[in-house]
Design a protein around this nucleic acid. Sequence first.
DNA 1: GTCCATGATTTTGA
DNA 2: TCAAAATCATGGAC
Length: 420
Amino acid sequence: MDDQTRMMTGLTGLGGLAQADVGDPDSVRKQQSLGQPQQDIGDILQQIMAITDESLDEAQARKHALNCHRMKPALFSVLCEIKEKTVLSIRGVQEEDPPDPQIMRLDNMLLAEGVSGPEKGGGSAAAAAAAAAAGGSPTDSSIEHSDYRAKLAQIRQIYHSELEKYEQACSEFTNHVMNLLREQSRTRPISPKEIERMVAIIHRKFSSIQMQLKQSTCEAVMILRSRFLDARRKRRNFNKQATEVLNEYFYSHLSNPYPSEEAKEELAKKCGITVSQVSNWFGNKRIRYKKNIGKFQEEANLYAVKTAVDAANVSAQASQANSPATPNSGSPGSFSLSHTSDTYLGLRSLNGEGLNIAPSLQVDTLHPATHLTGGYEELSGSGLYTPHRLDANSWQDTTNLPSVTSPPGPPGSVHSDTSN
DNA sequence: GTCCATGATTTTGA
DNA sequence: TCAAAATCATGGAC
């Protein structure tokens, strides 16, 4: 049986509606006069349509009568079926959306940041990593870290409370609409599927609100991250001791200020910073030194003295230990040429005429030492210092380095750091 | 608020 | 991939 036939059959079955029911003399009269099932149906429909023209009480009474009719469920069932197969079937195709990629992205991000999902000290790993990269002192970073976590927890709390409100509102509204539809289904053909569909529409609408919530939460987290964890923002000057250690290494290896990976690690450990920060520091130092040697002259001299004094102390101690009567006798650790070239250059400049050291220590300033140790004997001695550019002297060639003592060139040749 | 120093990042080239 | 160079962004002194 096709739909149309079934519908007609169903409607035909309603022929008795006018007779048994309504009790309206007019309709009974009409029913009797027409005498055909089709006409009966037309009459019933007309009555339904006419309800709106009637007074409220009359309409209520007629609605009630229609609702109580024994054929009503059959009529509604048929109408629902027709509706299902026409309007709703067209929508159905469009409504089966794939999961929204935007929401998925936001969900993933919130999960990664520890805002959604189980609490796991949200973002603390990221905070710790960023703090480490920023190279702040442990105290500083831990303060900032806890501050960051506190703010993140605040965001998390707000997010969850808003989410809860949203879910509550969504379910309340859904229930309300479902009840309304169920109520209406008594007077107009509404299938359970249609109700389901309506619920889905409501959920989609609420879902877009949820997406806004997630989006703004993500933004808040991003702002928090950039404020607390952005390395640039968190730039902190290294402490004095760290700078000293780095400068000592730099000036004692002035002929080739390229620490090996191992040396960098050693320096990083000594300074309490990361290896990449050591690399950054040397990168910056080299370029800035090169651009403005004159400016760094004093600093170079200072560290040269420091290194020389250290070396001399070591030498003196070693000499005393080995042969107190013959200082500087070439024993291990003695203040030899190979240890002091750059250092010596620095000392000479400091005194104006050079240091009063044995003539054998005089260095050809045009050919600075290729191997410097100063305070870093342990590094070079253990092979940590790898002079990978000794051959080319590219650093010296470009920097006009030969002597720390003499000005790098005519005043005009000294460039200021144009970077600022 | 300005200026300078300085650590970090980005771009470029070998 | 590494280093140089340029640039950005912040801290701190004034």
